[in-house]
Simulated assay, not measured.
Amino acid sequence: MKPFRTAALALCLAAPAAAGVDEAIDRHVLPGLAAFAAATETLAQNAEADCRPEALQPAFQAAFDAWMRVADLRLGPSETGALSIAFWPDARGFTPRTLSGLIADQDPVARDAAAYAEVSIAARGLFALEMLLYDEAFAGYDAESYTCALVTTVARDLDGQADALVTVWAQDYADTLRSAGEPGNATFLTEDEAIRALYTQILSGLQFTADQRLGAPMGTLDRPRPARAEARRSARSLRNVVLAAEAAHDLAAALAEGLTDGDLPQTAAAMERVRAAAQAVDDPAFQDVTDPQARLHAEVLQQAVRGLRDAIGAELGAPLGIAPGFNSQDGD
């Protein structure tokens, strides 16, 4: 194990913290963003060749898979960039309303990918594409239709967003994290601030998965809300839960590689429990949570996700000097 020491009120991890940041960026963040950009490029190219739903759905699924590796990074450029890539939750239905308005007006912006960057975020990104490709109210279009052109433009716009996110991370923000504590770095005044920021992403992502990806469709026992499941139209709600958990686990392992030689047996076991609990869920879109037995399976999965969060806190957070009661929502 690499040397480090803890203090009650502050982390003191100068050299190991830098190593942990490097591992997180080089093994997880930058490769994940690059894979997402490659997947969106394929999606845009496929849309230009054939923008009909049946032709484009496989590339859409691949792009969404790639996104989930970095979806819960809300740090630096990703904090704002993720909003238009994945506008969810959308409890008020802004996405269908905005898309319906564009189609009803035959708005020419649908044929201009550059101008489309100024459109409401509700009509951009993965969830706008999901609506157009899978929802019965939109997906019946043909190859010569306005909606088909709109799909192509949304795919191009998404590819542009992915490229921009990769660029700003690779050319700027990665160095901001790596240079934490150096003169001139006003974002991270100490090295421990950078490692704490990345650690926070892990915990907050898992909390979001438990509370929103699972909690939103589960609702309450008396009032389940299956219509609020993430990506239910494309039947990937369950898949997103598992991929988000795996992404958090991978980022934790990358940090641990630099800080504790990567030995996180409790975390690995907790991740296996998440996968096992997911296998017991029958409906990949969580539309069966109105059934008591199906709801129980969802609750077990939710508990497993929270267990993964707790395991990471014990094995990675504790060595960092971060107490088990650390609140990932406010950084305390």
Rank of each mutant, 00 (worst) to 15 (best):
R52T: 15
A128P: 01
G160C: 05
A285L: 01
A128Q: 02
Y173W: 08
Q106H: 11
L43D: 04
G219R: 01
A216P: 04
Y173H: 05
E144N: 15
A235W: 13
A235D: 15
L165G: 02
A82Y: 11
S120K: 03
L30H: 02
F138Q: 07
A247D: 11
I322T: 04
D26C: 06
L221M: 12
Y173N: 04
A256W: 00
T176F: 02
R309D: 15
F87C: 04
A115C: 08
P31Y: 03
P3S: 06
A62N: 08
R124D: 09
L73R: 03
N327A: 13
D107M: 04
H28G: 05
G81Y: 02
T176V: 15
P3E: 05
F87E: 08
A268P: 02
G125H: 02
Q207K: 12
A47R: 03
A17N: 06
T42D: 14
D330S: 10
R111P: 04
A216T: 14
F94Y: 13
P319N: 00
G331N: 14
T42A: 10
S78G: 13
F64P: 09
A197L: 03
V21L: 05
E54Y: 03
V151N: 00
G184L: 00
R92Q: 14
T290L: 00
A63I: 01
N46G: 13
V29K: 08
E130F: 00
A304P: 02
A63C: 11
A123H: 08
D330E: 14
A252D: 05
G125K: 00
R111G: 13
A49C: 10
A276D: 14
T42I: 06
D159M: 06
A114P: 07
Q207Y: 13
Q61A: 12
R213G: 10
P31G: 01
G181V: 10
P53F: 08
D172T: 15
D291I: 06
E118G: 14
A44M: 10
L9W: 05
E299R: 14
A63M: 06
L189G: 11
E193C: 05
L165T: 00
L203P: 04
L308W: 06
V21Y: 03
G258V: 01
D72I: 08
C51F: 15
P226I: 06
A268H: 07
G313T: 03
F208T: 12
R223I: 10
L238V: 09
M131P: 03
D163C: 09
D250Q: 07
A227N: 15
E41G: 13
V29M: 07
D263I: 03
S328F: 13
F64M: 12
F326A: 03
H297I: 05
Q201K: 05
P16C: 01
D175P: 07
N240H: 09
A55Q: 11
L296D: 13
R97H: 12
R233E: 09
R232C: 07
Q57K: 09
S328W: 09
L316S: 06
R232P: 01
L158A: 05
P324V: 01
A323H: 14
G313E: 06
E257I: 09
S328T: 12
A304H: 01
T176Q: 00
G76L: 13
R27G: 04
G32T: 03
A7S: 05
K2E: 15
A164Y: 06
E136Q: 14
A164W: 07
A276G: 11
R225M: 14
